[in-house]
Design a protein around this nucleic acid. Structure first.
Lengths: 200, 200, 200, 200
DNA sequence: GATGAATGAGGTTTCATTCAT
DNA sequence: GATGAATGAAACCTCATTCAT
């Protein structure tokens, strides 16, 4: 008697997720090229064959990491935030949320945020170009909020694009530091400092 | 007529420099592991043999890139700046200098700045750890300036480390964007926006 | 109500035959080594497990293809032919039968004829050597007929072996073309042309 | 002092040719897929690296085998033949030349003739389609000769295409036998038998 | 009977590095 | 100083085969 479809489906999904989760940190810290699939299979405790049973090749695995872990997370960053507040509070909350993740010792979340912010930097991978959702979501969200903040009279009148870039670049740079320096030595500015760039 | 010692020396140095310059962009954009020495030799129009004649291996080449191109540049960034002004003007000038490089179409300088800011991120290379001069120079310079700015009564009293991190992270993030987006589409905030984080 | 033994037996045989039929074309066009059992299971819409339930391994599957499809077919080619005619008519009918198959769009039959004629060419498989029945049946049949044709005074007195080889090689070559060129573009000489080699 | 360009060129060409020659027989007897590059490197006494230094991948190696060994040979088959004779003598000479090669114990030449006649059968390789020169050269040469033979009043009036196919298929089939059966057991009909298909 | 997840040996390919000239 | 042929370890990837259910 064969396994039921549900059982198969479940095993399949669990294993695929395990492999995915095990590769996130590696891709984030080492970069696509430097990742060795041997490390992945060892971490995920599976054979090469299984990895290739689920993902056609290294690229497809990376794509899956982005599409199933990183991009979905881009929504999670703003999930708990109340968008009905004034824009300045929303922006503050987003920055704060990011910094909280970076200051936490939840390496997984840190990696995901990092990769989310930097996905588009992997120049050699063609398929990423089409896939800048990660960037887009967070970028356009931020830009719209800054526009709203201006209308609400809280933000200064520098170009919204410039301000968006400034804020996101700063977070991006912080994420770099966090990854590299590690949990213990990481120091993070208060979000109020960042807000100063925006406020009148 | 055989070449004089000086001529030899000169040829030698020119060739070495060519190789070095050709590898900067590759290391910067692709990361250490993803760089293929074949590309380097092709760009530098030299043979594998010659590359290995000058540099013992890939690591040593990268080290040379850092020590001879990147780190020296970290001084160049602050070279033309008048440190006798009030700190707030010095800081402004440094940020401005960085942004000017990023906005220029001098890819070489852009790469160098980028690498300078991110050298320490190549986790897998042991020798980098000991060699955070790049970071140190620019970091400690900035921190000292911010301290001075506070004394001079211009900067707010947030922690200097926090402020330093904020400013440098922002520039770092900008450099990323520049590298990835390219000269034409790159947008850069005015340095005044960044200064707001520091000023009272 | 459980299945009766006969039903089981029937299902079993049907499944086995399906698998066999699905592999014939693959083995014929691609050659033993190039066949991928994944393709077979996909074509036969069965699992890997089932395939291995019926056939111990790839070699055994190939052996079954030969013994159950190809070799039996070697008899079928001469099945409807009236061996009581004069030898020259029998030979003509056999050639004609082969050409008819090749000119038809019955890919299955074409493949079988092709494989029948070329089984022995798969050098790397040890077990085939012992198994040249396919060759033997058709070869010895043809040789005997040509001998008879000589006695009947219709065929010229070239060596029978030579003539047999000539005729069969020609058909073999035709089958190759047919496989490769496909139904539409395939052109086949009339059997009368081939007969000229034999006739006085 | 580096090797001179000529030396390099020579070494290069020799090594490339060695590798090529060593792969011809393997590709011919086993088929593209079944060839293991390990065998090739062992036969050619070189490392994997060198093989890939000269040929980008397995396909390119096979392509080179065809373009540099097999196709050029298609001209060699007809090289020594006097095309100024009557067509029937030319055709006879060509068939004879082929049979001579097949009957010889020059395995290399046999392989080349075999591959020449069957190149287009490797269905899975895309690039072969465009490259049927081998086929074309020999095919169109033969067809033109048969046309001429008709005009000269020697050949019967069956369609030239049909006759060409018949003759070449026969040779093709013979080559198969030769490859498989080996030098000693190989029996070949006299070319006169084949000529009967063509003559009035 | 039947499934497809899982394995791992072995194939193809890459690339830092060496070395004769 | 300079070349590029040559190496081989290690990467990526395939596929026949096994096995728990």
């Amino acid at each position: 008697m064969p396994k039921t479809k549900e059982q198969c489906e479940q095993i399949r999904n669990e294993r695929k997720l395990t492999i995915l989760k095990c590769s996130v940190e590696l891709f984030a810290t080492k970069g696509y090229e430097a990742v060795n699939l041997d490390e992945v299979t060892k971490k995920a405790k599976c054979s090469h064959g299984l990895l290739y049973h689920y993902y056609r090749n290294k690229e497809e695995l990376y794509e899956a990491v982005l599409n199933q872990i990183i991009y979905p997370d881009s929504k999670e960053v703003v999930k708990d935030i109340d968008f009905n507040q004034k824009a300045k509070f929303v922006v503050h909350d987003i920055i704060d949320k990011c910094f909280k993740i970076l200051k936490s010792n939840n390496e997984e979340k840190v990696m995901e945020l990092y990769l989310l912010l930097n996905v588009h930097l992997q120049k050699s991978l063609k398929f990423i170009k089409k896939n800048e959702k990660g960037h887009t979501v967070i970028f356009s969200t931020m830009e719209e909020l800054i526009d709203r903040g201006k209308i609400e009279g809280d933000f200064n009148d520098s170009s919204s694009t410039e301000l968006t870039i400034a804020v996101l670049s700063l977070i991006k740079g912080m994420a770099f530091n966090r990854i590299n320096i590690g949990y213990k030595r990481f120091v993070c500015p208060r979000s109020e400092i960042v807000m100063k760039m925006l406020l009148k």
